[in-house]
Amino acid sequence: MADIEVSSTCEEGYTVTNVIDDEWELVVDALSEDGPSPNQVLAADYVSCYIPALRVAADQTGYDDLGAVEAEVAADLDDDDDLDAVAFEIKVEADLGDDVEEIVELGEEICHVHSALQDELHAEITLHDDVV
């Protein structure tokens, strides 16, 4: 049995209903009419994986609580509507001092989505500390 199982159904058009591990339903629509597009879901999935990874990275670097974390994601599409670039603008409540770059890089190493993506599509990450 696989670790993750997704059952996907597309009755017509470009809308796909996904049932994940027989528990959660996610509707994805290539045209963004009945739900987010696959690219939108990927951008949200990427940052949803990176934020917890960032928390783990901060903890491993000696910061036991980042406090509130807010992120804005900007994703660019090429002429074929393929993701071309992803950038995270992240703000954390904690003051990370000189450890920001180390924590960002360790977060990338921990994030499973970051690891899964091709080398050309890793997020450019800017972390703003002590602002939330």
Rank of each mutant, 00 (worst) to 15 (best):
Glu25Phe: 00
Phe88Gln: 05
Tyr46Ala: 09
Leu26Asn: 04
Ala58Pro: 15
Thr17His: 09
Ser7Ala: 04
Ile125Arg: 07
Ser8Thr: 13
Tyr14Lys: 04
Tyr14Phe: 12
Lys91Cys: 06
Gln118Asp: 14
Val113Trp: 05
Val28Phe: 05
Glu12Arg: 12
Asp78Tyr: 06
Glu25Ala: 03
Ile90His: 08
Glu109Lys: 15
Thr15Arg: 06
Ser115Phe: 00
Glu108Arg: 09
Asn39Asp: 03
Cys49Met: 02
Ala30Asp: 03
Leu66Val: 12
Ser32Asn: 15
Val6Gly: 06
Val16Ser: 12
Arg55Ala: 14
Glu11His: 09
Glu93Ile: 04
Glu70Leu: 01
Ala71Val: 14
Asp129Val: 05
Leu42Ile: 10
Ile20Met: 02
Leu83Phe: 08
Pro52His: 11
Glu124Leu: 00
Leu31His: 02
Pro38Val: 07
Asp129Ala: 03
Tyr50Glu: 10
Val132Lys: 09
Asp79Tyr: 08
Asp80Arg: 12
Asp84Lys: 12
Asp64Ser: 15
Glu12Asp: 14
Asp22Leu: 11
Ser32Asp: 07
Gly13Arg: 06
Glu11Phe: 00
Leu83Met: 11
Glu101Ala: 10
Asp21Ser: 11
Trp24Val: 11
Glu109Ser: 15
His114Cys: 03
Glu5Arg: 13
Leu127Arg: 07
Ala75Asn: 06
His122Gln: 13
Thr9Val: 10
Leu31Tyr: 03
Glu89Lys: 10
Pro36Ile: 01
Cys10Tyr: 05
Glu33Lys: 01
Glu5Ile: 15
Ala85His: 11
Leu77Lys: 13
Glu11Lys: 12
Asn18Arg: 07
Ile125Gln: 08
Asp21Phe: 07
Asp59Glu: 15
His114Lys: 11
Val16Leu: 02
Glu33Ile: 01
Leu66Lys: 15
Glu11Thr: 11
Ile125Leu: 11
Ser48Lys: 04
Ala123Val: 04
Asp98Phe: 03
Val132Thr: 14
Glu12Met: 09
Glu102Pro: 02
Glu89Ala: 12
Glu105Phe: 01
Pro36Leu: 04
Leu77Asn: 05
Gly35Ile: 00
Tyr50Thr: 08
Cys10Ile: 14
Met1Asp: 12
Glu108Val: 00
Pro36Ala: 09
Ala75Lys: 12
Glu33Leu: 01
Val113Cys: 05
Met1Arg: 06
Glu23Leu: 08
Pro36Asn: 08
Gln40Thr: 06
Val19Trp: 01
Pro38Trp: 05
Trp24His: 14
Asp99Asn: 13
His128Met: 00
Ala94Cys: 08
Asp59Trp: 11
Val132Cys: 12
Asp29Asn: 03
Asp95Gln: 10
Glu109Gln: 14
Ala75Val: 06
Asp34Ala: 09
Val69Ser: 13
Leu117Met: 14
His122Met: 00
Ala2Asp: 05
His114Val: 10
Ser8Glu: 06
Gln40Glu: 13
Arg55Met: 14
Ala75Thr: 15
Ala75Asp: 03
Glu11Tyr: 04
Leu26Lys: 04
Gly67Ile: 12
Ala123Tyr: 06
Tyr46Ser: 07
